[in-house]
Simulated scan of single mutants.
Amino acid sequence: MSDNPFLDPARQADLYGDPSRLAGRSSALMRAKTAGRPVLDVMVQLVKVHHRHAQNLGLVVDIGCGRGTSSQVLSERLRPVRLVGLDAAPALVAQARRRVGRIPDVGVSFLQGDFHQLPVASAACDLAVAAFCLYHSPRPENVIAEIARVLAPEGLAVLITKSRDSYRELDTLVATSGLDARAAHHESLYVSAHSRNLADLVKLSLNVITTEHEEHSFTFDGHDHVAEYLATNPKYDLSPGLYGKPAALAATLHEFLPDRPIATNSTITYVVAGPRGGRP
């Protein structure tokens, strides 16, 4: 069992068994954003720039598709013949199926599965996307090797992650408030695949075409807002009475700290790659 909840198989049902927790955390973070391009816009643009056949894609695989947000964007903006969204969490796959309706001329399906063993034939995939999911593997290089296996000779992979020190100011807030005195000492959630090592991991199996880093800034309005993000953040050891309960967590913050905006940041890294021996 790992101390990192992203790498602990026993924690996955707790983390992703209820899609509303992920939705609430993501919504709070996006409302706090003050700088940085929308990730899905950048992802689509990178495909259009670097894939020779971006307007005529066959199979697209969205690895770690979560609630289906990225799958919907890829389907609507790139119009592939077929898109398969894959996620390890059955509850997220079920929500993706409900959220993503029929898209004309695009066959969209969602599968529950392990990204270490992609349910795709070798050399069958024109585009593979893995956004904010590789750090859920203790050996992300094995996942990237699977992506290399399924890519067609002119296929493209777009892999996206965060910096290892993302949102470190929140560690200080949580520790100072007494919610988790060791908050600043916990291992980064992104330790296995982060901004500084992703390109090197990709190079083990694929030809890196380009790497882009972009600083994203966030400002939470105050305790009520940041509590929406912290309440289900798996990094912190919150008491059972606070985990998953933003109002109770906000009340604790108000009790021990003056209310004020909280600024933090994260570097988002995009690695675009193709099969060895060729460029899309």
Results as ranks from 00 to 15, higher is better:
Val93Cys: 07
Asp114Phe: 07
Arg97Leu: 00
Pro119Asn: 12
Val93Asn: 04
Gln117Pro: 01
Ala91His: 14
Gln117Ala: 15
Pro104Cys: 04
Arg98Ser: 15
Gln117Trp: 00
Pro90Thr: 03
Ser109Trp: 01
Ala88Leu: 10
Val108Pro: 01
Asp126Pro: 13
Gly113Glu: 09
Asp105Ser: 13
Ile103Asn: 00
Ala131Gln: 08
Leu86Ile: 09
Arg99Trp: 00
His116Gly: 14
Phe132His: 01
Arg99Val: 08
Ala94Phe: 11
Leu92Trp: 11
His116Glu: 09
Arg98Asn: 15
Val106Lys: 04
Cys125Thr: 15
Arg98Phe: 13
Pro119Tyr: 10
Gly85Gln: 07
Val93Arg: 06
Ile103Lys: 05
Ala124Phe: 06
Gly113Trp: 09
Arg97Gly: 04
Arg98Asp: 14
Phe115Tyr: 08
Val129Thr: 07
Ala96Asp: 07
Val108Arg: 02
Val106Phe: 00
Leu111Gly: 08
Val93Tyr: 00
Ser122Asp: 15
Ile103Trp: 03
Pro104Gly: 04
Asp114Trp: 03
Leu86Phe: 05
Val108Leu: 09
Gln112Gly: 08
Val120Asp: 01
Val129Met: 05
Ala128Thr: 12
Leu111Trp: 08
Ala131Arg: 06
Val93Ser: 03
Pro90Ala: 04
Gly113Arg: 07
Ala96Asn: 05
Ala124Asp: 14
Leu92His: 13
Val106Gly: 03
Val100Phe: 05
Asp87Ile: 08
Phe110Gln: 01
Ala123Met: 11
Arg97Glu: 10
Cys133Gln: 06
Gly101Gln: 11
Phe115Ser: 02
Gly113Ala: 12
Gln95Arg: 15
Leu127Arg: 01
Gln117Leu: 14
Ala123Gln: 15
Asp126Glu: 14
Phe110Arg: 03
Pro90Asp: 08
Gly107Ser: 15
Ile103Arg: 06
Asp105Glu: 11
Ala124Arg: 13
Phe115Gly: 01
Ala131Cys: 08
Ala96Arg: 03
Arg102Ser: 12
Ala121Thr: 12
Asp87Ser: 09
Gln112Met: 07
Ala131Gly: 05
Ile103Gly: 06
Gly101Val: 12
Gln95His: 15
His116Val: 00
Arg97Trp: 06
Gly101Met: 13
Ala91Met: 11
Ala128Ser: 14
His116Arg: 11
Phe115Gln: 06
Ala96Thr: 07
Ala128Glu: 06
Arg98Val: 15
Phe115Ile: 03
Ser109Asp: 14
Ala88Cys: 08
Phe132Trp: 05
Arg97Ala: 09
Ala96Cys: 11
Arg97His: 05
Val129Gln: 02
Pro104Phe: 05
Ala89Ile: 02
Ala128Leu: 10
Val106Pro: 03
Phe115Thr: 01
Leu111Arg: 09
Cys133Met: 03
Asp114Leu: 12
Leu92Arg: 11
Arg102Glu: 05
Val100His: 05
Leu127His: 05
Gln112Thr: 15
Leu111Cys: 10
Leu127Thr: 05
Phe110Val: 06
Ala91Cys: 12
Ala130Asp: 01
Ala121Met: 10
